[in-house]
Structure formats: C-alpha cells, structure tokens
Design a protein around this nucleic acid. Sequence first.
DNA 1: CGCACACTTGAACCCCCTCAACCCAAGTGG
DNA 2: CCACTTGGGTTGAGGGGGTTCAAGTGTGCG
Lengths: 251, 251
Amino acid sequence: MNTLGARPVVVAKSAATAHCIECGARGRSVCNAISERDLDRLAAVAVPKRIEKGQVFIEEGEAAVDFFNITTGTAKLYKMLPDGRQQITGFAGSGHFLGLAVSDTYAFTAEAIETVDLCRFSRPKLRALLDDFPLLEKRLLETACNELVAAQEQMLLLGRKTARERVASFLASRHTETVGCGKRSERVALPMTRAEIADYLGLTIETVSRTLTRFKSEGKISLPSRDEVEIIDPHWLLGVATGEDSHAAFV
Amino acid sequence: MNTLGARPVVVAKSAATAHCIECGARGRSVCNAISERDLDRLAAVAVPKRIEKGQVFIEEGEAAVDFFNITTGTAKLYKMLPDGRQQITGFAGSGHFLGLAVSDTYAFTAEAIETVDLCRFSRPKLRALLDDFPLLEKRLLETACNELVAAQEQMLLLGRKTARERVASFLASRHTETVGCGKRSERVALPMTRAEIADYLGLTIETVSRTLTRFKSEGKISLPSRDEVEIIDPHWLLGVATGEDSHAAFV
DNA sequence: CGCACACTTGAACCCCCTCAACCCAAGTGG
DNA sequence: CCACTTGGGTTGAGGGGGTTCAAGTGTGCG
C-alpha cells in the first residue's frame, strides 16, 4: 500500500533519517501516528540497535532512561522473586512499545529470546516528540489500554484457569495473533522455550510438556518441530481456553 | 492547601457546576489536571451518580458508552468464566478512573462493594474535553501506566507466589495504601468479604481464612473485627510478601 | 561422533481445594 | 424476649491437580 512499488530512491537526507520510512514495523506500531512527511523528525530521535538472543536490555529496578520500540524479533518481559521464581508478564514482538512506566525505574526486565532489532528513544527526546505530535500520545494511551485489557485477561488465566485451559489459551492466542499478521495456515511459531511458556502461564516445564503431548494424543494439535505447533482443531482449543462447561451439554 | 479555609462561597454558576470544586477525590484523580478556573467545563460534563452496594454499573461485554470516576466508596472489577469462576482484577477506590479500554465493549465488570459515589462521562464529551485539555490526556496515560505496573505485579503474585505470600502481599499493599492516605495507625480497613479477597488472590475463601488465622496465631496481625486488620509486624509481612528466602540466613 | 541442552516421561509427594460441619453476629417476627 | 433464619466466617478431614525429583530421549552443533 504505502511502499508504492518504488524501491527506496535513497533519499536526499542523511542515511540515519531514512530508516523509519522503510521500517516494517511502522504499520503495527505507535509510529503510524506520525505522517510520512514528518517521519524524518521521528527518525532523528530513534536510534536503531540490534540485541542478540539472551541479552537483557531493560532491567527491573534500573533507572528508566530510555523507551524502546521493537521492529523485529521477540523479547520476554518478566519480574522475579529473590529466590529465582519468575513470572513472564508478556512477550513483545514487532511493533511493541516498551518502557511505558512513568516511574523513574523500570518495573520489569526485558530480554531478547531471539535476535531483536529495536529503536531506542531517550526520555526527554520522546517527550519533546509527544508535545509536537499529540496524535502520538493518543496512540500511546490506546496501546496502554490494550495492554491493560490483555493483562486482565492474563490475571483471569493465572488466578482461575486449569493447566489445560492455560495452555489452550496460550495456543489459541498465538494462533489468532499469527493469522492476524497475515500469515495464514495453522502453523504457529513458538520462538520461546517450554520453560518460558511455563513462566508465562504460571506452570512448570513438565506440566506444559505433558499438556502439549496430551493435546497431541487427543488429535487437537501436532508438534512438527520443537518450535512449531500445528493447530488442528482451533475451535475446540478456543472452547477449552474460554473454560466452556464441558458437561453443560445435556441439561 | 487549595481550600484556603474559605467555605465554598456558593458560586454564581448553577448548582450542577459546583460539585467538582468541592469534590474530595479531585486531588487523587485525573481531574487535578484541570485548573480550578476551568473546573466548570469539567463539571458541565461530569454527571454525579450514587451506586448502592452490590449494584453492577459496568458489565463485561456491554457497549462501552461511558467512563466513570469514583469519588467515594469502593468497587470491585472482575472477569468471569462461563462456569462461574471469577477473578477480581482490582479494587477501585476514591479517585480511580474506570473504563479506560479503548475497545467498544467493556473488558470487565464493575460492582460496588460499598455505597459508591461516582461521576459519569459520556464517551464523546470526554473526548472533546481531552482535545481541549491535553494535560488531562497526559494524566490518563500516566494512570494507565501505573495500572499496568500494578497488573504486572499482580501477575507475579498469581503466577508464582504461595498462599501465604499472596495474603501477606495483599495486607502489605492495603497497609501502605492506607498510610498513604494520611490515615496513620496500623488499623487497615477491609471493605471486601473473604470471598472477594479470595477471588482477588486466586485462592479459596477457606485458604484466605486459614492463612489469616495463622498470621494471627503467629502474632503478626490481629483481627479486631470482620472488616479490619491490625498490622502488628509490617516489616515481617513485607518480607513474606516479597518472597524473601526465609532459609538463606545461615548459608 | 559426542556433548550439551531442551524436552519428555514416570513416580511420589504436597499445597491447596473440596466438601462438610460448625460458629457467630445481626436481624426478624411471634 | 427468645426462637429462628440468614450470611459471612472458621475449622476439620480427605482428595486431587500440579509440583518435585529423577531418569530417559531426542536433536542440533562443534
């Protein structure tokens, strides 16, 4: 749509100001609040950076000096207890804006689970940008609200759902997310390990593994590889995920 | 500070426009983004309403036509599964802004657990207000971020903490919240029932009750009445709440 | 080829849930 | 005034879903 077929005619501006125009994540992210002709303003303050797998780029408790916007790859966001128990509060993919906390320290840790490309914004520069582009602030508020809704859904999962329901919810949401990205087919990527799924769902590795093999033996999914799931029966999965009374049928 | 000792000199404007000036929740809420001389603009669109205990005023899935701001009392916000399991995602007290979801349906249900007074804003009128007072939008974003941080903390609790740690966390946060409101002393009010505490912490009534009596018999709290707790050892409670390794002492 | 790491599978255990009885304070009405 | 009801809270016994501990099984990569 907006690439118009033309190859990037490589710009009169400096190389640094070009990257926003070509950014594949722009459509998905808050950056789409800024019109194409103002993109150089954005590009001037967005510092691109590559984060290798396993690298932590936001640490809970550290001074919150920067904001980030992920362009490619996936990061896990988590909080830890002193004895090592950890809870992953979310996975951040392309277009995800990080560091929303207004507090002066980060409230969570962020670690790349595959190679991540992101843009870094310094706090004051982003603030200046927000003052010039009120639409950007509106988009941020929108984003925050959506995350809040997702967080509430996750609280329901963690507080009240069974292991089966949790894993089903996870797969179902991954599935709808995947088809939402245009990629059709029932093949869903799992860039995270079983341990990370467990820490996201409030379970143990073993329970996640057992539940997945159970679903497989029930013919609802298949596991073509370690980091892929094929959703055979999406409707059934969604039913389990939403905790539909399985026995209310004959009443 | 801002009352200046003077009794409300009851205004040249109509009675309806006066209520914001006298509102006890103003200091705590997003409304403090609007200066005193513009308060009539706010008052013109804020419709006060009383909600009796037990009454639902936001219903999950219904069209999101209004926003609310609580002035007095407490409401519980929750999500439910079809078989009746429910998860309370938060308690909203004085100054709390509700309905942030940008979606066109509410993502949760809100019910008064004691008599609640609130202000209702219609969606379009609030939007107009936001356009005229950018500071108000900033405050809303701030609020949303704070709630997001709280939600992440709650996910850690629900996903990884033991029953003891959950109850301790609950009491500790109630405690700091109470002292934050100026009310000193270690008497903490519990306007919610045991069932509601349980649904908030992802436990059962019985476990909550047992854990409380356990804390009591250990001399860390006392229970002067059904809806009050006296925090005898706040420091110890906080320790349990944050999951400090209880046995790392002698290593 | 072999090591390392992620995952799977099995068996025993335990924390919390379930079910059930009981307590207690606040009505309510005869 | 007291029997009865009602609703929230407490306490006890037993059971189960998920964890813990411990092997076993791939599988990618040097």
